[in-house]
Amino acid sequence: MEAFIGVFAWFADPANWQGPNGIPTRLLEHVVMSGVAIGIALLVAFPVGLYIGHTGRGAFLAVSLANIGRAVPSYAVLVIVFPLSIAVNRETGLFDIAFVGTLLAMILLAIPPIVTNTFAGMRGVDPDLVEAGRGMGMRGGQILSRIELPVALPVILAGMRTAAVQVVATATLGAVIGGGGLGRYIVQGIARFDYQRLVAGALMVALLAIATELFFSWLQRRAVSPGLSGRSVRAYENVAQLGRVDVPAV
C-alpha cells in the first residue's frame, strides 16, 4: 500500500511533468517512435502481404521468414540491429544511434504479423466471390479493392493490432541502448534504485499498450462491414431502427 502511495506521489510531483525527462515528452517520444515504426512496417509489409495473397506467389518463403521473425525475441533483435544502426549513423551522421536501432528492431518485429495476416486474410476470401466479381466484369484492381480487401479486412486489422501492441512494448527497450520513450523511466528506476519511477514507467507502458489495443478494436468496428460479423449486424439493426445508418468505409 505504501508503495502504491509512493507511485501515486511520483505521478503527482510536478517536476515529473516538465522538461526533456517529463512525462509528456517521454510519452510523445514513445508514441512517435511507435507510430513511425508501424508506419514504415505497414509500407513494407502490407503491399507484400497483398501481393502474396492476391497472386499466391512466394507464400511459403514469406510466411517462413515471418515465422522466424516472430520466434526471435525483441531484445535479441535489438541487440542484432544495434551495430547496424551504429554503421548507419557513422555513414550518414544523421540519426541518433539509439533511435535508429530501436526503430529498426520495431519495424522488423512489426512486419511478420502484418504480412502473415494480410496474406491469410486475402487467402481466406471465398474464391466464389472473386469468381462472381470477375464474371460480372470487374477488373483486377476492382476485385482487390471492392471484394478481397473489405472481406479480408478483419484478419488484416488483427495483424496490425498485434504488430502495434508489440511495437509499443518494444519501444520500451529502446531506452536500454540509450533511446527515449517511456522506457527511460524503467532504466532510470533500475539504475537509481528508484522503485517509484520504475513502477510508474512500467504502468505507463502497460496503459499505452492497452490504449493501442483499444484503438485498434475501435478501428476494427468502424472499418469492418457489419455484414461480416453476426454480432455487429445485430448492433447495426438496432441502430437502423433508430433511423441512423452508418455507411461502412468500403
Partner: peptide, 10 residues
Amino acid sequence: IQQTGLFPHQ
C-alpha cells in the same frame, strides 16, 4: 453462380 456469390460485406 452456385451459392449465389453475394458479397457479404455489402
